[in-house]
Design a protein around this nucleic acid. Sequence first.
DNA 1: GTCCAGGGAATCA
DNA 2: TGATTCCATGGA
Length: 289
Amino acid sequence: MKEKQYILKKSETFNLKDIFECGQCFRWNEEENGSYTGIWKENIVNIKKEGQDFVFTGICKNGNFEEEIQKYFDLDRNYEQIKKELAKKDKYMKTSIAYGKGIRILNQDLWETIISFIISANNNIPRIKGIIEKLAKAYGNTIEWNGKKYYTFPTPRQLKDVTVEEYRKLGLGFRDIRLYETTKMILDGRVDLQELKNNPNTTEVREKLLTLSGVGPKVADCILLFSDLKRLEVFPIDVWVRRVMNDLYIKNEDEAKVSKKQIEKIAKNKFGNLAGLAQQYLFYWRREA
DNA sequence: GTCCAGGGAATCA
DNA sequence: TGATTCCATGGA
């Protein structure tokens, strides 16, 4: 396969660490030279910052290299405008946006995002990454690039005959049955992924996602926000978001007593249809800074 | 040994 | 609806 290249000129809304370490994706890894290499669909790409520019080098089996990149990295969206809008809300938004100013919300494959965030339940990011890598190595396709092997995320069909026991051996723990059941539901059409993409009604799509095994409110919202469903108005609430929302806005001395509804209400009133972006700036800032 | 991790589902009030 | 409890696993 022929290696391709794409160059993104200096940008105030594109930063490798912010994009790949903000918790939205699990298949990008930092190289020794500070660049990142990752895989999505059949694309394997390394991104290296050269001076002020970003150099994308890699292979692309289907489609146009540049178009694939523009879509995946959400390059057509005006993040400068979004940041400006959110920064007006309050000093905390201003601070968190300044910290994660290069975040972009990726358009990740819906199926891959569903499975990845089912695995994320009550789990930590390094282990989530490890499990997904093992899953890809066991059941995905192998692509070689620069003498290294990479593995595509397995399709629903590639997981069709995988047993619960085999999942357990990969280290999935109690999530094994969830993966098994959800794969079945998608394969037999009880949940039609293409239909979800075509449905503009986020509430309806969310309801449908919640029928999947292992998908609760938080995972559903992550899927809505981080996949190519790209619903920026949802507000996933995990332990970190609960923490930061309580610290900043609610100030309950017992964090565990803060209800989801309380948080949701504040998020909606304050951030409106950009709540998902706000959530991501707050999450990244609270977890890293 | 204990606690925690981008929670969900079952159970019970 | 809302609160509790259990669920594998690995690292700190």
